[in-house]
């Protein structure tokens, strides 16, 4: 009778663990579903390429599932967008490496002295814009805004999208971007000013 009771308890624990794993997977599925479209659009605006954006979002999803599934659910949002931003920056850095190497092969005269040691992400601005296929999908008003956001320097773009669209606090945005809170405020303020100027007269 005693052993039977133990078996039941042990069985209950296994069952409870299975339920917990299933609940965790379901919760993760729901979370990823809730952010996937905005994450894709952020990456697409940043890269100007659907396929690159899809790869970036996939990497971010896999990174979250693989490394942070056991973290509390309320931390997933910040962690996911931190991974996403990191992948977007990697994309820019690779683009920067590509440009440097091609310019080297083409033996173009290029004065790099002023850029020494500066993060290419800081310098990157509107490298891609809005792709033709994206324009086809967007209405005119939406297209204007997406184009204006795509034209922002990448740091301003990310600060703006995380703060306004994802509704992150200044502290959360700073954590996701890996910059100071003051920097987030500056980037956001500049982004808003640029967008106002660019969209002036349209609204």
């Amino acid at each position: 009778m005693y052993f039977e009771s133990l078996d039941i308890q042990s069985g209950n624990k296994v069952e409870a663990k299975q339920v917990s794993v299933m609940d965790n997977r379901k919760a993760m599925d729901q979370f990823l579903y809730s952010v996937q479209k905005r994450a894709f659009q952020m990456a697409r605006i940043a890269t100007g390429c659907e396929q690159d954006a899809m790869d970036i979002v996939q990497d971010a999803m896999m990174g979250l599932v693989k490394s942070y599934s056991d973290k509390p659910e309320n931390e997933w949002h910040g962690l996911f967008f931190k991974i996403l931003q990191s992948r977007i920056y990697d994309h820019y850095r690779r683009g920067s490496v590509k440009n440097k190497i091609f310019s080297w092969f083409r033996a173009e005269k290029h004065d790099d002295e002023d850029e020494g040691g500066i993060d290419p992400v800081q310098l990157a601005a509107d490298q891609h814009g809005v792709s033709p296929e994206m324009k086809l999908q967007l209405g005119q008003a939406t297209e204007q805004v997406v184009e204006a956001v795509a034209a922002l320097p990448i740091r301003q773009q990310q600060a703006f999208l995380l703060r306004l669209w994802e509704g992150m606090s200044v502290a959360e945005t700073a954590e996701s971007m890996g910059v100071s809170e003051g920097s987030v405020k500056t980037h956001y303020s500049r982004a808003l000013a640029s967008l106002k100027q660019r969209l002036e007269g349209y609204w």
């Binding site: 479209k37 905005r38 659009q41 999908q137 209405g139 008003a141 805004v145 997406v146």
Partner: peptide
Amino acid sequence: KQSLDNSVDEL
């Protein structure tokens, strides 16, 4: 924000 939401609806 509304425009960005619209852009996602049009995926």
